[in-house]
Nucleic acid binder design. Sequence first.
DNA 1: AATGAATGAGGCTTCATTCAT
DNA 2: GATGAATGAAGCCTCATTCAT
Lengths: 219, 219, 219, 219
Amino acid sequence: MGTRETKSRILDAALELFNTSSTSDISANRVAEAAGISRGNLHYHYASKEEIVLDLWNRIEAEMGEWSKNPMSPTLENMALMALRQFRLIWRYRFFYQELNVLLERDTELRYRFTRARQKRMEDVFVFFRQLANAGFLRSDLSDRQLRRLIKISWLVSDFWLSFVRVEDEVIDIGTMEDGFKLIVQLFEPVMTDRGKRGIPLSLRAFSLDPTDFTQRSA
Amino acid sequence: MGTRETKSRILDAALELFNTSSTSDISANRVAEAAGISRGNLHYHYASKEEIVLDLWNRIEAEMGEWSKNPMSPTLENMALMALRQFRLIWRYRFFYQELNVLLERDTELRYRFTRARQKRMEDVFVFFRQLANAGFLRSDLSDRQLRRLIKISWLVSDFWLSFVRVEDEVIDIGTMEDGFKLIVQLFEPVMTDRGKRGIPLSLRAFSLDPTDFTQRSA
Amino acid sequence: MGTRETKSRILDAALELFNTSSTSDISANRVAEAAGISRGNLHYHYASKEEIVLDLWNRIEAEMGEWSKNPMSPTLENMALMALRQFRLIWRYRFFYQELNVLLERDTELRYRFTRARQKRMEDVFVFFRQLANAGFLRSDLSDRQLRRLIKISWLVSDFWLSFVRVEDEVIDIGTMEDGFKLIVQLFEPVMTDRGKRGIPLSLRAFSLDPTDFTQRSA
Amino acid sequence: MGTRETKSRILDAALELFNTSSTSDISANRVAEAAGISRGNLHYHYASKEEIVLDLWNRIEAEMGEWSKNPMSPTLENMALMALRQFRLIWRYRFFYQELNVLLERDTELRYRFTRARQKRMEDVFVFFRQLANAGFLRSDLSDRQLRRLIKISWLVSDFWLSFVRVEDEVIDIGTMEDGFKLIVQLFEPVMTDRGKRGIPLSLRAFSLDPTDFTQRSA
DNA sequence: AATGAATGAGGCTTCATTCAT
DNA sequence: GATGAATGAAGCCTCATTCAT
């Protein structure tokens, strides 16, 4: 069996376990068991749980890297799409966002990688919204400072919306993410032009649920 | 030595440890050591770590209960005060909010208690804002539905703002909380009257940091 | 509350617990709980579990002492009665007989007391059977040696019959004891006279189940 | 080191300890120590003490399985041999028979395995005695029902004879087992033919003590 | 690459016991 | 007589880790 494939199986197994409990409550033992390999072998591939988490982060980063490589054209549909794929990514790796501070506290390198990626991604999003403004969807007098602050709140919302909702709701689905998107829309409404307000899609249900679809879509 | 005192020492020690690592990473051993008592005695008072967490939640709940008993008069200063004391509570018990989903997943009773308290508290806040509207600070055409949605976002912000910021910022202080408050203000701005917009305090630095001060203040 | 009463409650609770698990698996803790007193208080009355077991033995011994004080007249009904009350005693204190060797290994004094009581009791029984022979129920050529050996086997049967049966049977009741008695009868049959064989009661069901009845009955 | 060898050493050590105290009083710790391995390794091979007991039962069962595979020819010497090897087996695994009910109460699977094996073995013995009757050693009018009841008593005797004797006797040796055998002989005497009575060996001392000898001997 | 055996540390928990009240 | 607080030992178990194969 190839190294790649084994590592992949380990990550899959670990992700599923982390998402249901918490990283601290999942032992390497159980990951090995779930991955169908021996403890010794798990150790051969990943010396510690930290390394597994880091490699799961690599997956997240890789996916977001794809997004950066294929920037979306500035349409309102794409704004919705961006939100949706972000929610979905966060949901798939929810353990990461639910334990964010704990994980970053534990691993300095991870913290560095995470914040760097966040900044890079924020810049991408900033550019997208500037273009959205130029295209006449946002008010022309929106200052960079204002815009950045708006993005920051939406960021907070997208990072923690699912955690927030999960406290009370049993099921997380497309509807939950739609609600989160509506919150973000509401945040941007005061700075949208009439044309923007009219065109914003309020449902995400039309969009494909297959995450791989998200990477290439452009207008 | 009285039970109360010992229990209190345990909770203090546990809180401090939980806030720096994560509940799973802190052993009962270390809590006992930090509290200056024996392992056996720790177990005598708290059968499990779950019980400690639950009792720490009792503290949170008790503090919020005080707030409910002494409702604030509807002024803009009090709106700021409410946000500040909320941030401060969350910061003091930050481990709780940073691991929220994990903790609630682990303990069903805690989940019930938490959601019930949240609903109760949300209702209090709703009443406060309604009074704020009646007092002429919020636009009179603000619907209950709109108001509730606004409160929901601010809630998300206050629950997770510090977690969000902590990723990048080393130090959490009054300034951090002020920034959080500004976010909330920004959320409410679109529905504020001119009188409301003018009167909103943008700095929290004037307010005392002593949390006990927060309970009685009214206009 | 009087010492006597508390001690009695402790013994009752301990007996019930011992009978369902095993002495080693029952902690003083659980005995205290079942008796409805504090651990400290249990300790006040019984310094160790050994002492509790010894005091339970005292109860057994006391009950058998009553038997000695009121010897039965040599009838076949009384032979059945003796067996029955013996089975019942053993069943009530079954933990004792099921762990016999372990318990005696642990406590030298208990071993001494137990063997002494057994010898005393065996002598009583021997006398009873000699009278039974004199009364014409057993063959007159039965030697003391033979008789003693027969008693020994019956002893073994009564000590361990219930343990033996319990392995496979869920319920132990009067029928089970009846079966045990039949075994004993079978053992004695070869040395019984025709009159003895004819008169032996094969059912114990006619006898009262109230153990206190057993102490005074005599022809 | 091979698994087999280590497991074997664990079983040897556990058996010796169990036989002197009781299973509950022997900690995994002490077993590991006696086996000369680490606690962790002990747990690697046996997850719990229950499993050790079960594996010791496997040994008993295996040994009895050998007996079944090599049925003895129906001679009086072999009847004695069967009793002797049974006593010896019980003595070697005496902890098992001394705690029988407790152990079976604890482990349902063990109970099932034990009763199944007992029934199988009883059937073997029944066949042997039937052959003994056919060979003219037992009275031809002996009914199956009578025979089964006799076997049942002897079974009780062989299971518990050593427990019974051990209460008073310090040393258990070939003589003790001989006494037990005599009891059994006495049980069967009433149904033996004259030829049977004359031929029965009253001493077991002539038989080799090496248990491996017992498996093949046939007339 | 992979496995299974082995180790020792450390976690949780129960327990017997002591002691002040 | 009785209680509750406290201790420390010891039990069981899980775990990360190492290593020979």
